[in-house]
C-alpha cells in the first residue's frame, strides 16, 4: 500500500470548479504543500474553503486544472488509493460519526481496509489515545459532548494512518477548554494538515503557513505571522485581526 516515502503532499495548479451554476466557486487556485506542513486556509464565509477541501478528497471530480495528491492525479481510478493517504474531518461531527460507539466508528475505516483483528484493535487504541479518548472507547456517540465528538471524528481519521489531514472549521462550537485541547492535539500530530477556518486565533496557534482565499482564488500564501498582522489585507477580504491583536 504505502511504500513510497514522498515529500510532496498536495500539488494544485490552475484549479477551477463550479457547482451546477456557471459562476465558478474556485478559479485558478494554486497550492503546493509538502510533508509536515501545517497550513491554515482562511477566508470569509461562502468563499469556497469547504469546496476546495472536498475536491482534495475526490468527493467531486468535475474540476479543471491540475490536482495531485502525493503525486497521484485525482481521477476516478486513483480515488480509492488517494483516500488511503488523506483524511477529511468534517465540519459536522454528528454526520461524520455514524456507528453506535466510538470504538466501532474508529474501527470502521481499518476494517474496510481488510486489516486483521489485532491490527484493527491496535489502530483503534492508537487513534483514541492520540486524542485522549481511550477511556471513552465504549461510550455511545449520542451521549458525547460536542468537543468529544470532534476529537472522536479526528480519531476515526487517525486510525487510517493518513499522511494528510484536512479539517473543516474544527474550532466551531468548541468551548475554550476543548479548543485548547484540540490545539495541543493538532500540534502533536506529525501529518501534513490543511485547516479551513475563519477563526484566525485558532489558525495562529496551529499553522505556520496561511493561505487567504477570496473570490474563489488564493490572495495570499505565506507565513501566518505576516498575514495576521496585516489588518488592511484581512479587512479587505472580509476578515478581522485575530482577537489577541484587537484592542
Amino acid at each position: 500500500m504505502k511504500t513510497e516515502t514522498l515529500k510532496e503532499c498536495i500539488n494544485i495548479e490552475h484549479l477551477g470548479f463550479s457547482y451546477d451554476t456557471e459562476e465558478p466557486v474556485l478559479r485558478d487556485v494554486n497550492l503546493y504543500a509538502v510533508k509536515g506542513e501545517s497550513i491554515g486556509l482562511i477566508g470569509a464565509n461562502g468563499i469556497g474553503k469547504s469546496t476546495l477541501l472536498k475536491l482534495l478528497v475526490g468527493l467531486d471530480l468535475n474540476y479543471s486544472g491540475k490536482l495531485e495528491i502525493v503525486t497521484h492525479p485525482m481521477v476516478k481510478e486513483n480515488v480509492n488509493h488517494i483516500r488511503e493517504h488523506i483524511g477529511y474531518v468534517f465540519q459536522d461531527s454528528d454526520s461524520q460519526l455514524f456507528m453506535t460507539t466510538v470504538e466501532e466508528d474508529v474501527a470502521f475505516g481499518p476494517l474496510n481496509y481488510g486489516l486483521d483483528k489485532e491490527e484493527v484493535e491496535k489502530r483503534v487504541k492508537y487513534a483514541l489515545s492520540k486524542v485522549h479518548l481511550l477511556e471513552l472507547r465504549k461510550k455511545q456517540i449520542y451521549k458525547m459532548s460536542g468537543g468529544e465528538k470532534k476529537l472522536a471524528s479526528i480519531a476515526t481519521i487517525l486510525a487510517m494512518h493518513p499522511d494528510i489531514i484536512l479539517m473543516d472549521e474544527p474550532s466551531v462550537a468548541l468551548d475554550p477548554k476543548n479548543r485548547r485541547v484540540l490545539i495541543n492535539i493538532l500540534n502533536e500530530m506529525p501529518q501534513m494538515k490543511l485547516i479551513a477556518s475563519h477563526d484566525l486565533d485558532f489558525i495562529m496557534d496551529t499553522c505556520e503557513r496561511t493561505v487567504l482565499m477570496d473570490d474563489g482564488t488564493i490572495i495570499f500564501d505565506g507565513p501566518t505571522e505576516k498575514i495576521m498582522h496585516d489588518r488592511e489585507m484581512l479587512e479587505r477580504h472580509g476578515l478581522e485581526l485575530p482577537l489577541r491583536f484587537q484592542r
Binding site: 478528497v57 468534517f90 454526520s95 460519526l97 476494517l111 487510517m160
Partner: peptide
C-alpha cells in the same frame, strides 16, 4: 443532505458497498 454527508464519510473511510463486520 445529512445522509449524503454520512455516505461521504463512509466512502472516505474505505466503504465500498459492503460492511465489514467487526465481530467476526
Amino acid at each position: 443532505d445529512r445522509a449524503e454527508v454520512v455516505y461521504e464519510s463512509m466512502s472516505l473511510r474505505g466503504f465500498r458497498g459492503e460492511f465489514t463486520y467487526a465481530g467476526r
